[in-house]
Amino acid sequence: MLTSSRSRFYWANFGIPLLCAAVVFLMFDMTKIDIAFSNLLFDPVTQTFPLDQVHFFEKLTHKWARIIPNWTAEIALIGAILSFVWPLINTQKHLRLGSFLERCKAAPVLRFAYDHRRDFLFVVFAFAICTGVIHFLKSHTSVYCPIETTIYGGKIAHMEWYNNFQLFREAGDGRCWPGGHASGGFTMLALYFVARRYRWRYSKALMYGALLLGFVYGTTRVLQGWHYMSHTLWAGIFVWLACLLTALAFYGRARLEMPVLQKHEQLAQRAQPQVAT
């Protein structure tokens, strides 16, 4: 029973992404599908990707869109810092300070941060590790963006990532594979693993929302000529694996594979501490 459950967990969380990686490699990296799709978006007369010239589209989809992952990371970092504050405050000894914190509603925030310290730290580490993985792959493959290559009026020859991969040193100045902007959306998958820890019944909705956000982020850059579609898919695969490994380190497999709580179970769980007190 336990072996079956463990196998199912690893197959679903590692097997499926690795299978997707094989499919993406065979379908995109070993064919010209990426180029064929980008050709549809390229205007050969003006030698431009029309949407790359629309400044509002650039602001909306590239600059403003970063607010979502950026604010999430900042909130998690603030929460992680505040989680160390509450244990330092001895409200029994400093009654006035405790009373002041309760009146200004700071005490509940500090208690919440303390109770969820592991979750805040997990999100901070997950975001940092995902960013590190993507930056490592970018610098050690040196793939140039479509708009920078000779195919679309640039000066650099097109090259696949596996033709230029260097494990122990930077491969060059190209920084286009995997998709960095897409990975920013995919890092929101960290919230899915927090939800899994608490067996929240809407955890899958969080997962699908993070995947959709990453695909939207990545696709908008494809439309502008700054990425191929496969760059987005690879970003999603690597971010998922990075988040999963970080979640296993923070929470453990047993906790992550527990089934989600149904509504009546959630109500019973909330009522249990009240009965105990």
Rank of each mutant, 00 (worst) to 15 (best):
A65K: 05
Y208V: 15
I147Q: 06
H264D: 15
S203G: 11
A128S: 15
L95F: 06
D34Y: 00
L40V: 14
W161Y: 04
G179Y: 04
A22T: 08
P146G: 07
N164Q: 14
G132N: 09
N39W: 02
I67K: 01
W240D: 02
I75C: 07
C176G: 12
K204C: 05
T232P: 11
M188D: 08
V239R: 09
S4Q: 12
A254M: 08
R175Q: 08
T149D: 15
W86N: 14
F14I: 15
R66V: 02
S230E: 11
M258P: 01
V109T: 03
A12Y: 09
C104L: 11
F37D: 03
E257L: 03
M188C: 11
L88H: 03
L26E: 12
A22F: 05
T187D: 00
I129G: 08
A249V: 08
L245M: 10
N90P: 02
Y10V: 08
I151Y: 13
M159Q: 13
W177I: 11
E102V: 10
H94V: 01
A276V: 13
L233E: 09
T3Q: 15
T141C: 06
D119H: 06
G79Y: 00
R8P: 03
E170N: 08
W226N: 12
L26A: 14
L212N: 06
L233Q: 05
V85H: 12
L245T: 11
F186V: 05
A80K: 05
A205I: 14
E148M: 13
Q166N: 14
D173F: 08
H227K: 11
Y10M: 07
M258V: 02
V143H: 00
A12K: 15
T91W: 02
P108Y: 03
M27W: 13
R196S: 05
F9C: 07
P146N: 07
A12R: 15
F28P: 00
E257G: 07
L223G: 07
L19V: 10
F100I: 10
G174M: 13
A276R: 07
H116F: 11
T91L: 02
M27L: 15
F49D: 00
G185L: 01
Y152M: 09
A276P: 06
F14C: 11
G209P: 10
Y251W: 03
P108W: 06
A271H: 11
V275E: 14
L101N: 03
L121K: 06
S99K: 11
L82Q: 01
I78C: 09
M27F: 13
I147S: 08
L101Y: 04
D29C: 08
P69M: 01
E148Q: 15
A80N: 04
T277L: 10
M27H: 06
A157N: 15
I147Y: 14
L41N: 03
A210F: 05
F136I: 01
D173M: 09
F57T: 10
R255S: 14
I237G: 06
Y251D: 04
D52I: 02
G15C: 09
D119A: 11
Q224F: 09
A254V: 07
D29F: 05
F57H: 06
R169T: 13
A235C: 04
A182Q: 08
W226L: 09
P273E: 04
L121I: 14
L212T: 09
W226I: 09
F49E: 00
H62K: 05
L233N: 04
S7L: 15
G214S: 05
A182T: 11
S203T: 10
V133R: 12
L88I: 10
I81V: 14
F112M: 05
T91K: 07
